[in-house]
Amino acid sequence: MIRFDKVKKSFGPKEVLKGISFSVKKGEILFILGTSGTGKSVLLKNLVGLLRPTSGEIWIDGQEVSHLTEEEYLPVRRRCGMVFQHPALFDSLSVYENVAFGLRRHFSDLKESQIREKVMESLNLVHLNGIESKRPQEISYGMQKRVSLARTLAVGPEVLLFDEPTTGLDPITTNAINQLIQELSHKLQTTSIVVSHDMHCALDIADRVIVLDQGHIVEEGDVEHLKQSSHPLVRDFLQEALSAERA
């Protein structure tokens, strides 16, 4: 349903993505792994039009999106919800208003009661209740991350994009977020693309994994295929994850 075709992206003289091609099937969980600074986040931002590729094509359900105007991108962004690396909650708004923010913009004809219903529903999905009236600063970082996820879920996206969902979290919250991603993709039949450097998480829940290094895809396949890989970077990642498991 999503296809990247020879996508390149440069910032000034620095080429970050050097011709990336891959596709994602409906309902699968795709992990994009790589060390810091290899352009994983840039890849996601190209998909939702926050950045535009220098060359190449991005297809979503048979529509080429990289040349759309900001206006035309709005329906795409409704279908592809992005969960940012920072919680990126609006700190002047309450949790409730944060989750309702996208609903009010994307669906201008919703009644207040319908909005309330949807907000509660999405907060339920991330297992948060009774904090609607709190401000983002008053809740823990892990909770902020989940509110951020609820805000993205509220508009009912078909594709969920996670930018480093577990970076900077303790192992217990990491597991909780991981389970949440898996649970949501089963419950809501959403397609998920997760950008991460956490091989451990990928081995747990990924249907398919892409490994990115210096702007190129160096390995692609399911978890079993990945475990057989001979690429040195993939071996390093695996070793690290497996030693963590043994401990």
Binding site: L50, F90, R151
Partner: peptide, 14 residues
């Protein structure tokens, strides 16, 4: 820098 502006764009607002 905390990506709130990107979030606004993703949630369908200018």
């Amino acid at each position: 820098v905390t990506e709130q502006i990107d979030a606004i764009r993703c949630l369908g607002a200018n």
